[in-house]
């Protein structure tokens, strides 16, 4: 705010307007007068659900320039009526958290440090190990001849924070592959 530009100097504005003590409009700077809420200037609003606990509070995600700028409660939700708990309110920081990882890391046997790996090779390596371990530990029948058709060599843990669709794909893939040791937080 160019202090001396024209008559914008608050002292003149104090005299001009009724605000002689310089408490309100006379001292407001141009930037303050142009204040706008982040939500109003967001490109789009997306309705989502909080990822933390099972109450399933509605969330509104405000996006600007393809980046999440604000996540707050969704007033339309009959479950939460626009309210959130501390974790829900911190969702925006969960998405943009400083500690979040963005690249695939790999630790070779006996290595003491991570090494970067590009995603496609990582998935290929995992697929190979999956098939190899499945073959090593396949059990066709048990000792009494009853069919088992399973592998005990592959296990999985986790799913309560995943979507139903993801759980569905995981269960279908693992069951088709015969890996039955699948578990998730519902048990803990």
């Amino acid at each position: 705010m160019g202090r001396f530009s024209a008559l914008e100097w608050p002292v003149f504005r104090q005299l001009r307007s009724g605000d002689h003590l310089g408490r309100g409009p006379a001292v407001a700077s141009a930037k303050t007068r142009a204040t706008q809420s982040r939500n109003a200037t967001a490109d789009r609003v997306v309705q989502s659900i909080c990822p933390y606990c099972a109450v399933g509070c509605g969330q509104r995600v405000y996006v600007k320039d393809e980046k999440v700028v604000q996540i707050e409660g969704d007033p339309d939700s009959p479950v939460s009526r626009g309210r959130l708990c501390p974790k829900g309110a911190a969702s925006e920081q969960l998405v943009n958290a400083p500690g979040r990882q963005y690249d695939v890391l790999y630790r070779a046997p006996r290595a003491t440090e991570w090494q970067k790996l590009d995603r496609d090779t990582a998935i290929d390596m995992i697929a190979e190990r999956f098939v190899r371990s499945r073959r090593n530990t396949w059990q066709e029948t048990d000792d009494e001849g009853r069919i088992l058709r399973r592998t005990m060599g592959i296990a999985s843990l986790g799913g309560a924070t995943l979507d139903n669709e993801e759980n569905y794909l995981i269960k279908k893939l693992f069951t088709a592959a015969g890996a039955i040791q699948i578990e998730n937080q519902a048990r803990i």
């Binding site: 809420s37 626009g82 309210r83 959130l84 708990c85 309110a89």
Partner: peptide
């Protein structure tokens, strides 16, 4: 008092998120 939100007629962030109002 979330002046930027008030300018756009929104409720301040703390009041909106308080679970028990």
């Amino acid at each position: 008092l979330c002046y930027d939100r008030l300018v756009d007629g929104e409720t301040p962030a703390c009041a909106k998120t308080c679970p028990t109002t």
